[in-house]
């Protein structure tokens, strides 16, 4: 590797000595420009069953759901992070299951509207309000790990209001 870098460095030196103009990006030579990193996945800290690909979902809400392990996703209104009354029963059912588990992950999700950071924060606020509600129902705080996935994990890609609604949700996954 060192000899390769040395050869490249020498080549760059001689190119620089000619009358040719040195173009800045050309300095990014073969050994350094194509840094391709394999995802940065820390296998020792990976998310168990919830950390990998999306699961196959049996418990559906309008035909789609993003949770696993018998838990049900909670859905939100556009741009909102308050829990609607029709979702209370789902949370209650989820809390009973979660109490029997040692650790769960809850993932906040958004539809495709809005931009990057704001959507991630919105997803997190949704996850947080669910976590707070679970704790109010007696779930141990230490059992819950939260993450926001923004708009990275849509369940539906059609351009309809119904489809967008299915992407504004909090998913639950049992870690162990």
């Amino acid at each position: 590797m060192k000899s390769k870098i040395f050869i490249i460095a020498i080549s760059v030196f001689f190119i620089g000595c000619s009358d040719k103009k040195k173009v800045q990006p050309s300095n990014v030579t073969n050994s350094s420009e194509t840094v391709t990193i394999d995802g940065g996945v820390d296998s020792s800290n990976n998310g168990g069953s919830g950390g990998g690909n999306a699961a196959t979902y049996n418990n559906s809400y309008g035909g789609l759901d993003g949770s696993s392990g018998g838990l049900k996703s909670i859905y939100f209104e556009f741009g909102q992070y308050s829990i609607s009354s029709d979702m209370q029963e789902r949370i209650a059912q989820n809390s009973n299951i979660i109490k029997t588990k040692s650790k769960i992950k809850i993932e906040g999700n958004c539809d495709e509207f809005g931009t990057d950071e704001y959507n991630f924060a919105l997803g997190l606020k949704r996850a947080k309000v669910i976590k707070d509600d679970l704790m109010a129902k007696g779930v141990d705080e230490n059992k819950i790990v939260m993450i926001s996935l923004g708009e990275s994990t849509p369940l539906c890609r059609e351009t309809t209001d119904e489809c967008y609604a299915k992407n504004r949700r909090v998913d639950f996954h049992i870690i162990n």
């Binding site: 350094s32 940065g40 990976n46 998310g47 950390g51 790990v145 993450i147």
Partner: peptide, 17 residues
């Protein structure tokens, strides 16, 4: 990186990886 349970911020040198 959102690849583990806890999001982690890295600083990457694109010339040497």
């Amino acid at each position: 990186s959102y690849n583990s349970l806890i999001p982690t911020l890295y600083k990457l040198n694109i010339y040497n990886g």
